[in-house]
């Protein structure tokens, strides 16, 4: 078993090294050896930069390369890499929290009431048919270029994902388990707290991992379309200067943020759903 793990890790490192090497030296090597027609232009550093160029840009954007020192650079650059990352994460988390909370709340309410869900069904279907990204210019018009419009965008994107899952989860709660709880003396509210919510939690969590990525997408798109700061703004600025390396820096930072947040959600999920067989060994 340990050997198997080791060999998997070895393969992963090997693939990573090959990819990075091709990225770094592939284009130059191909240009030196092959006739011009065979040189793959997709590897052109003009489009995809190079790991070494990305590192240099990272040092520059991250205020490590400034001769005046880190703090001077940090203070003088309002949208430096660190501040941009912080702002994007902050907006994303608020959007995620608002969207997920409202999604769970309304999902539970409509899931518990066949009457209300019948009333609101056509409205929800209609709202859900709008591609969320199409709303972003409107949202920026309403809430301005600041952080609020990004929070709103992210929460709308997150809301629908979480809402639909919570709704389904609430409706699929075992009726006999509810009856059992009632017969053991549970009030409507106690049933909700001790049966419906724990039972629907598996469904809610199934939506939270993608919801984290969706929140990030919401914020970034908002920053693309109109923002004063954030990682999305950094990308748009780099694009204006046709600087692929700087774009890559922001993209890699987003990737890392996404990995960390998804990891945190999965840990919480594994703990809260430890009664389910698939999370048996993980908590």
């Amino acid at each position: 078993m340990a050997q198997r793990k080791l060999s998997i890790l070895a393969w992963q490192i090997f693939i990573l090294v090959v990819l990075l090497s091709v990225w770094e030296w592939g284009y130059d090597t191909a240009k030196a050896l092959l006739p011009r027609a065979f040189v793959p232009s997709i590897l052109d550093p003009y489009f995809i930069a190079k790991p070494s160029m990305i590192w240099t840009s990272f040092l520059k954007l991250g205020c490590f390369a400034d001769p005046a020192g880190f703090l001077a650079c940090y203070g003088a650059t309002p949208n430096n890499l660190w501040l941009a990352t912080l702002v994007t994460i902050k907006n994303m988390l608020w959007g995620f929290l608002w969207g997920a909370s409202l999604g769970v709340l309304i999902g539970l309410t409509l899931g518990r009431s066949a009457y209300l869900s019948k009333i609101f069904e056509p409205f929800i279907v209609a709202m859900n048919s709008i591609p969320r990204i199409a709303l972003v210019p409107l949202i920026i018009l309403m809430f301005g270029l600041g952080d609020l419009s990004k929070v709103v965008t992210a929460s709308i994107v997150v809301f629908f994902v979480v809402f639909f899952n919570t709704f389904e989860g609430t409706r699929s709660v075992d009726r006999d388990q509810i009856a059992a709880a009632r017969l053991l003396g549970a009030s409507e509210l106690t049933v909700l707290r001790t049966v419906v919510i724990p039972s629907a939690l598996a469904w809610v969590f199934a939506s939270l991992t993608p919801a984290v990525s969706f929140a990030l997408i919401g914020v970034i798109v908002g920053e693309f379309i109109g923002a004063e700061r954030g990682l999305g703004k950094l990308i748009i600025e780099a694009e204006a200067r046709a600087n692929a390396a700087e774009m890559m820096v922001s993209i890699i930072v987003m990737m890392i943020v996404g990995i960390i947040l998804a990891f945190i959600v999965r840990r919480i999920q594994a703990y809260l759903l430890r009664w389910q067989p698939q999370f048996e060994q993980q908590h």
Binding site: D174, D176, Q177, A179, A180, A181, L184, G185, A186, T190, T194, V195, P198, S199, L201, L273, W275, Q276
Partner: peptide, 23 residues
């Protein structure tokens, strides 16, 4: 009940003590 209505998210203790807990 005839059907299995034990709460899978509660331990054996948690299930047996459920009625007492909510009371």
């Amino acid at each position: 009940f005839q059907r299995d209505t034990v709460f899978p998210w509660r331990t054996v203790e948690g299930n047996i003590g459920y009625g007492l807990e909510i009371a």
